Simulated assay, not measured.
Amino acid sequence: MTYLPFTSVFAAAFALSLVALSVPITLRRLKVGDMVGDSADEVLRHRIRAQGNFTEYVPLGIVTLGLVEAQGSAAWLVVAIGGMLAFGRLLHAAGMMCPSAPLRGFGMIFTYLALIAAAARLCIDALYL
């Protein structure tokens, strides 16, 4: 069985991050009395999109990170890709909660860079095996 210690730590951190993004949604839903769907409440909508964007990008990020690690890439590369993804998601979430377009934009740039780096490494490994 392959053990993926770096991916495991990042997956655990992302799981906790998802909870951290979800709790403010629940609290806001209780406050505004809107328990289902998106809302006319702008604050709630921003929180929902911050969580939604997280769930759109992080799963593929974790999968590609795990594959990079499983293929025996250097630990520094796995940590760099995971760190870029985590930093990107943090910036994006902060930019959604504030709201701040520059934070959101930089968050997406780091997210894209992490996915591109993982994809490039996977393709290189596949071509040279």
Rank of each mutant, 00 (worst) to 15 (best):
A11V: 11
I124N: 06
P102E: 09
R28Y: 11
V58W: 08
M96G: 00
I81S: 12
G82K: 05
Y112E: 01
A119S: 15
V79G: 00
D125R: 13
A40T: 14
F106G: 08
A20L: 15
L103Q: 05
G82C: 02
L77H: 01
G33F: 11
A11D: 11
I62Y: 04
G83R: 02
I116D: 04
C98V: 13
V19R: 01
V58I: 15
A114H: 00
A70W: 00
K31I: 02
R29C: 09
L44V: 05
I109Y: 12
Q51L: 08
A50Q: 08
H92S: 00
W76T: 05
S73R: 08
G33T: 08
S22T: 14
G37P: 03
E56W: 08
L85F: 10
M84D: 03
A117H: 10
M35L: 15
A101R: 07
M84Q: 08
A86Y: 09
F106E: 03
Q71A: 06
T111W: 02
A119E: 07
L4M: 02
I48Y: 10
R28F: 11
P99F: 01
A13Q: 11
V23G: 01
L60E: 14
A15N: 15
P99A: 04
R89A: 03
Y128P: 00
G37D: 04
M108A: 14
R29D: 10
G52W: 06
P59N: 08
L27E: 07
S22K: 02
M84T: 05
M35S: 07
S8T: 13
F106A: 10
A118V: 07
I48L: 15
S73A: 12
V19D: 02
V36S: 13
L77Y: 02
A101T: 07
A50T: 04
L85W: 02
